[in-house]
């Protein structure tokens, strides 16, 4: 019980800050400081969200598909690359700088190229999502593999473990927390990545819809799309947290011990 009230108190400042911002926004619109065709009021946005809901869902479905496929491929790619980099030192030395460089290329700059190369379908979008999501996961996994105590590996070898067994029993489980930290970041990148690539061409998706309503100067609907993207990203991150808790049942143990005395 005490824990619960503590966690509510901890969240209180964030809730108040958010409420204040909404209030300020409403105030600016209500007093007419900014004309409503430039900045719709919160109420307008909520109305647009409700009226436009079927449309939003239709386009969200496409974006989510792109984000999901891209993220899954990104996870697979990150896993393969991080694992072989950990296994072969020369490969790590060869690839590390290249990986960092790929992350300095602005997404916006390569998105049009991808569209040129791959057309207006899903392929360039998924590719962009893969490029943006695989890096945090790969870095997380690599860091996790390397966080393993060298004495632990020596002991495993003394007990007769081979390379695969050391990976399966020690390295991979030790990398899981780092993997999930990376995945959480990547999950939010995935949706944003999909939307950005849709801006530059396509037939459906939240990014396509955004450019459409922008051209129509329907700013209230544009805000509704933005809010939907935020909600989707938050939900995805929560999903990652849920999967993390379920797949790592041992992490909650310590807390339980501290609360239960002794």
């Amino acid at each position: 019980m005490k824990e619960r009230s503590e966690s509510i108190t901890a969240k209180l400042p964030a809730v108040i800050a958010l409420a204040l911002i909404l209030f300020l926004w409403w105030l600016i619109c209500a007093t007419g400081m900014v004309p409503s065709y430039m900045l719709p009021s919160p109420a307008d946005v909520v109305r647009a969200f409700i009226v436009d809901f079927p449309n939003l869902m239709y386009h969200a479905k496409t974006s989510l598909q792109e984000a999901a496929y891209g993220l899954l491929i990104g996870i697979g790619l990150a896993f393969v690359i991080a694992t072989v980099m950990d296994r072969f030192r020369w490969l790590d030395q060869a690839l590390s700088p290249i990986l960092v460089i790929t992350q300095t290329i602005p997404t916006i700059a390569i998105a049009p190229l991808l569209v040129l190369w791959m057309g207006f379908g899903m392929a360039p979008k998924i590719t962009l999502v893969v490029i943006t999501t695989f890096f945090p996961i790969a870095v997380g996994l690599l860091e996790g593999y390397r966080s393993v105590d060298a004495d632990e590996i020596s002991l495993m070898r003394a007990m007769g473990a081979g390379r695969y067994q050391i990976f399966r029993y020690v390295k991979f489980p030790s990398a899981l927390p780092h993997f999930f930290s990376g995945l959480k970041i990547s999950a939010s990148y995935a949706v944003v990545g999909a939307v950005i690539s849709e801006w530059l061409g396509g037939f459906e998706g939240l990014g396509v819809y955004m450019t459409r309503v922008k051209k129509a100067y329907a700013f209230d609907r544009m805000f509704a799309v933005i809010i939907l993207i935020v909600i989707i990203s938050l939900l995805l991150m929560a999903l990652v947290d849920l999967i993390r808790t379920v797949s790592m049942p041992w992490t909650g143990v310590k807390a339980a011990k501290n609360n239960g005395g002794k």
Partner: peptide, 13 residues
């Protein structure tokens, strides 16, 4: 097999 000062138990098992 051997045993060190660190118990080196695997936390996930």
């Amino acid at each position: 097999s051997y045993m060190l000062q660190k118990d080196l138990l695997l936390e996930h098992m």
